[in-house]
């Protein structure tokens, strides 16, 4: 299936409070329900919001809980700059599924305001993607918030990203299993919106990867 024997490696990246752990739980359930083995290395600990966080997510026949550098088949980033922060894990031409959302850090905001000439600008998604493209041509950039709003609930961004993930042809879990896991684990009242968000993400992801 992939480089490391029979293991498919996904690096999740995001910012504390974005629901990375739920995302990991959803894919974990989907994998287990499909009869695949899963192992993760997660970052817990300091419980502050807005810190950089990650999950090493490994499906198939993983041995170590940590993905070795250069061996992630896929990266799912819920915040754009966090995709770049863990780029050393992505294999050449691995797939990046990322939100175009940027949450500037406070130190960056401070640099912007301290520059009297107003030359210091926030890092842009375009700059980030340009860097990512030096490792892979397979970057799926999603306006996850817009798609979530289109699905009827702005809190369904994660389902958009998961939908796009399921559209990836190497992804080892059947899309319908992933959808089932999403719907089983999101709050019951949001099932419809999450289902739509999943479809929108899958269509958007599929379109990106074909072109």
């Amino acid at each position: 299936m992939t480089e490391t024997g029979k293991t498919f490696n996904i690096m999740f990246a995001g910012v504390g409070g974005q629901g990375l752990m739920l995302l990991s739980a959803i894919l974990g359930k989907a994998a287990v329900d499909t009869g695949l083995r899963v192992m993760t290395g997660e970052q817990h600990g300091l419980s502050q919001r807005q810190g950089s966080i990650y999950v090493h997510f490994r499906i198939g026949d993983p041995i170590s809980p940590l993905i070795p550098y250069g061996r992630a088949d896929m990266m799912i980033a819920m915040e754009a700059s966090e995709a770049l922060r863990y780029i050393e894990y992505l294999k050449e031409d691995g797939v990046v599924i990322m939100s175009n959302r940027i949450m500037p850090s406070v130190t960056e905001t401070e640099r912007v305001v301290l520059d009297k000439q107003k030359k210091t600008k926030y890092l842009t998604v375009e700059q980030i993607v340009e860097r990512l493209k030096q490792v892979t041509k397979n970057v799926v950039l999603l306006d996850s918030l817009a798609l979530a709003i289109q699905a009827g609930n702005e809190r369904t961004e994660n389902s958009v990203l998961i939908g796009a993930t399921a559209a990836c042809k190497d992804f080892p879990i059947p899309a319908e299993e992933v959808r089932k896991a999403v719907l089983a684990l999101v709050p019951p009242k949001t099932v419809d919106a999450n289902s739509k968000a999943f479809d929108l993400g899958r269509d958007a992801g599929g379109a990106c990867l074909e072109s």
């Binding site: 910012v15 300091l46 502050q48 919001r49 807005q50 810190g51 950089s52 070795p68 550098y69 250069g70 061996r71 700059s81 770049l84 922060r85 780029i87 050393e88 500037p104 850090s105 406070v106 130190t107 960056e108 640099r111 890092l123 700059q127 980030i128 860097r131 990512l132 030096q134 490792v135």
Partner: peptide, 27 residues
């Protein structure tokens, strides 16, 4: 199996535009 040092140093170069995200009090 992989030139890990090369992977890391390339990544470091790519990340030079990346602002750090230090731990911080929650809103």
């Amino acid at each position: 199996s992989i030139d890990y040092d090369a992977v890391l140093s390339k990544a470091e170069g790519l990340k030079d535009i990346l602002p750090e995200r230090p731990p911080i009090f929650c809103p």
